[in-house]
Simulated scan of single mutants.
Amino acid sequence: MVQQQQLDRAFAALADATRRDVLERLGRGPATLGELAEPSGMTLTGMSKHVRVLEDAGLVTTEKVGRTRQCRLGTERLDDAMAWITFYQRLWERRLDGLDAYFTLTKGTES
């Protein structure tokens, strides 16, 4: 159940384009809330809400540095989400391979 909740938080966080942009930006290095908000013209309050969602998912960490809040990529990587995606990717690949084999076999018996 706990893993399911972590997946839910990660996918919910990634569902928003602004939050994906934040992760992309933080992939280049730490940034303040103001630096994250500036490109989109978003208020600090609005960006703070997005960063909080990413923090709750473990994808971002923040630290108060003087009068600013410094953001970094979190230590919680997307390993659980990738494992979930990979499982279903392999499942569908096996099913499609089976379907392909069926049609190949059926086509060969029609002659």
Rank of each mutant, 00 (worst) to 15 (best):
residue 102 Y to P: 02
residue 103 F to Q: 08
residue 94 R to D: 11
residue 99 L to G: 05
residue 91 L to C: 02
residue 12 A to R: 14
residue 8 D to V: 02
residue 31 A to S: 11
residue 77 R to H: 14
residue 90 R to G: 12
residue 102 Y to G: 03
residue 44 L to T: 08
residue 35 E to K: 12
residue 21 D to C: 10
residue 90 R to F: 07
residue 17 A to S: 05
residue 72 R to H: 09
residue 27 G to C: 09
residue 54 L to S: 03
residue 97 D to Y: 03
residue 46 G to Y: 04
residue 46 G to R: 05
residue 46 G to T: 10
residue 26 L to P: 01
residue 26 L to Q: 08
residue 51 V to S: 02
residue 59 L to H: 11
residue 70 Q to P: 00
residue 76 E to Q: 07
residue 105 L to P: 01
residue 77 R to D: 15
residue 15 A to I: 02
residue 84 W to F: 12
residue 11 F to I: 08
residue 60 V to P: 01
residue 27 G to F: 10
residue 49 K to N: 09
residue 9 R to T: 10
residue 44 L to M: 11
residue 94 R to K: 15
residue 44 L to V: 08
residue 16 D to E: 14
residue 111 S to M: 07
residue 25 R to I: 00
residue 105 L to W: 13
residue 47 M to S: 03
residue 64 K to A: 01
residue 32 T to C: 11
residue 65 V to G: 02
residue 60 V to E: 01
residue 90 R to N: 15
residue 108 G to H: 02
residue 41 G to Q: 13
residue 84 W to K: 07
residue 109 T to Y: 04
residue 57 A to F: 02
residue 79 D to I: 03
residue 94 R to V: 03
residue 74 G to P: 13
residue 12 A to L: 12
residue 4 Q to L: 14
residue 4 Q to Y: 12
residue 9 R to C: 11
residue 45 T to R: 15
residue 82 M to V: 10
residue 34 G to Q: 04
residue 13 A to I: 00
residue 9 R to L: 15
residue 9 R to N: 14
residue 27 G to P: 00
residue 54 L to K: 03
residue 17 A to D: 11
residue 64 K to C: 00
residue 111 S to K: 08
residue 81 A to N: 05
residue 85 I to M: 11
residue 14 L to P: 05
residue 23 L to C: 06
residue 26 L to T: 05
residue 104 T to C: 03
residue 17 A to E: 12
residue 96 L to Y: 07
residue 22 V to M: 09
residue 101 A to W: 03
residue 65 V to I: 10
residue 104 T to Y: 09
residue 106 T to M: 13
residue 109 T to W: 06
residue 59 L to E: 08
residue 81 A to H: 06
residue 39 P to F: 14
residue 16 D to M: 10
residue 33 L to T: 09
residue 13 A to E: 02
